[in-house]
Design a binder for these strands. Structure first.
Length: 466
RNA sequence: GGCGCGGUAGCCAAGUGGUAAGGCAGAGGUCUGCAAAACCUUUAUUCGGGGGUUCGAUUCCCCCCCGCGCCUCCA
């Protein structure tokens, strides 16, 4: 039993151990808060959530930092268009992001840090690069000279040995194809926000944010750095170039990148306009759990093609698991304990663990759960599932749900109270007893219309909310 | 062009040098007053195509075809 992850740096699946003690120091590139995040963004954050939960399940403690990029070209442009301050504009979308990840049951990283609150650290990092000879100044802006960092390209596995030094531009949204050097500090221009600093009045480049904040909180060498594959180059490559030029030490030990969510076989992206936000899908009455399940069920290094059929399938899968749990909790089981079944539970649990240990293979982990569900349902149907095995089955479900977190229905406002439901069920039972099936079906339909599903079993009626 | 990922049943998708997990959907059936739930049967002689290695390849090697991503902002 050892945890293994695919490391982009080495292009291999490697055994994972933290550098210090039992604490995993992890950094995640968070959102740029210029708009609502879409479900493609949320796929990556869901992957990180599964990673967090599994690391903890395996006994590690976490020190996880996520940044919020709250100053950047698009933010400046959009805020200006809406006649708002940067702070005012980003506050809206920062809160929306926090709300969205909470809706999807994504755990909050131990620290969520904002770029604009770490300007001094970034300036300091740039100064250190300057002292070590990795920078040059042009038009008041400070650039990183990658010609001075020979191992540039080791993460993205690109060969930059033929690169020309000196070509540079000073905006995030480049318009020169041959630019390779990147900006560390942007001199203030007409009307843009700027901070006074030893580098002159200006604002930080995107890449230096992450280097400065990651090292401030997590030290010079991190255990894990995650992000979407699109950040591998140039963003993460640049983080390495900055951080390692400053410290002379390896910046990150394990780089984990999650594949994109696509739609109609194309990458979902804001610039392409082919995206759904979480709010869009919730507005279509899909549940957060179904969305979470869909995003989590495809292993993170595999492209996930988003379809509504897939989303419905996810919801159906959750229903199957919830029905199973309800059955465990409400059926009457014969007395005793079955050692063969107990062994079956252990096998399933071990398979679940092994699947997640191997680079978070969520698809295989789910298969282990569903095989177990089918086998034990069969045993229950045959009356061969004793009461003494119920607890272990529920424990296994709990372990599953500690990672996937989809069993508990999201609370809905309104609807019938439990007492009202019970009263109607009692009325229906009376109708059934007098073989008034018209009335009993009427009540069942009435409840169904209000989101309450009845199931008649040998032991009586059980119900659930849809 | 460079780098990277992928092509497995209607859809999603796991997987291994030894004969194809799981979920969803579909069809039939058992159970039920009817449902629901559950279960059973059924759905890929086959894993993009062609060579090669091997007793044996979906799994290893070579070539080719197709899709996607990064190489400029982007999870």
């Amino acid at each position: 039993m050892s945890l293994r992850f695919y490391n982009t740096l080495t292009q291999q699946v490697e055994e994972f151990t933290p550098l210090h003690d039992n604490v995993v120091r992890m950094y995640t590139c968070g959102p740029t808060v210029y708009n609502y995040v879409h479900i493609g963004n949320l796929r990556t954050f869901t992957f990180q959530d599964i990673l967090r939960r599994w690391l903890r399940a395996r006994g590690y403690q976490l020190d996880h930092v996520m940044n919020i990029t709250d100053v950047e070209d698009k933010i400046i442009r959009n805020a200006k268009a809406e006649n708002k301050s940067i702070q005012e504009y980003t506050a809206t979308y920062t809160q929306a992001f926090l709300d969205d990840i909470a809706t999807l049951r994504l755990e909050r990283p131990e620290r969520i840090v904002k770029a604009t609150e770490h300007i001094p650290e970034m300036v300091d990092a740039v100064k250190k690069l300057e002292e070590r000879g990795f920078t040059y100044v042009s038009d008041g802006s400070v650039y990183y000279s990658i010609a001075n960092f020979p191992s540039y390209g080791k993460l993205s596995h690109n060969d930059f040995s033929g690169i020309r030094a000196g070509a540079r531009v000073d905006v995030d949204e480049y318009d020169k194809a041959d630019a390779r050097d990147f900006v560390l500090w942007k001199a203030q221009k007409n009307g843009e926000p700027g901070w006074d600093s030893a580098l002159g009045k200006g604002r930080p480049g995107w890449h230096i944010e992450c280097s400065a904040m990651a090292m401030k909180y997590l030290g010079e060498t991190l255990d894990i750095h995650t992000g979407g594959v699109d950040l591998t180059f140039p963003h993460h490559e640049n983080e390495i170039a900055q951080s390692e030029a400053i410290t002379g030490k390896p910046f990150v030990r394990y780089w984990l990148h999650s594949e994109h969510l696509s739609i109609d076989a194309q990458k979902m992206s804001k610039s392409a306009g082919n995206f759904f936000t979480l709010r869009d899908l919730l507005g279509m009455d899909y549940t957060p759990e179904a969305i979470r399940y869909l995003l989590a069920s495809v292993p993170y290094r595999k492209k996930l093609n988003f379809t509504f059929e897939g989303l419905k399938a996810a919801a159906a899968s959750i229903d199957r698991l919830r029905n199973y749990k309800l059955r465990l909790e409400t059926d009457k089981f014969p007395a005793g304990t079955n050692s063969t079944l107990a062994e079956r539970t252990r096998t399933a649990s071990a398979a679940f663990d092994a699947a997640l240990d191997e680079d978070l293979n969520t698809a295989e982990a789910l298969a282990a759960v569903f095989e177990y569900v089918r086998d034990t349902n069969t045993a229950m149907d045959a009356g061969e599932f004793p009461a003494g095995n119920v607890a272990e089955a529920l424990e296994f479900l709990t372990r599953f749900d500690s990672v996937f977190d989809v069993l508990k229905p999201s609370t809905r406002t309104g609807g019938l109270s439990d007492a009202e439901v019970d009263a109607l069920i009692a009325e229906r039972a009376a109708a059934k007893k007098s073989r008034d099936f018209t009335r009993s079906d009427e009540i069942r339909a009435q409840l169904a219309a209000q989101g309450v599903i009845l199931e008649d079993t040998k032991e009586g009626v059980r119900w659930k909310r849809s």
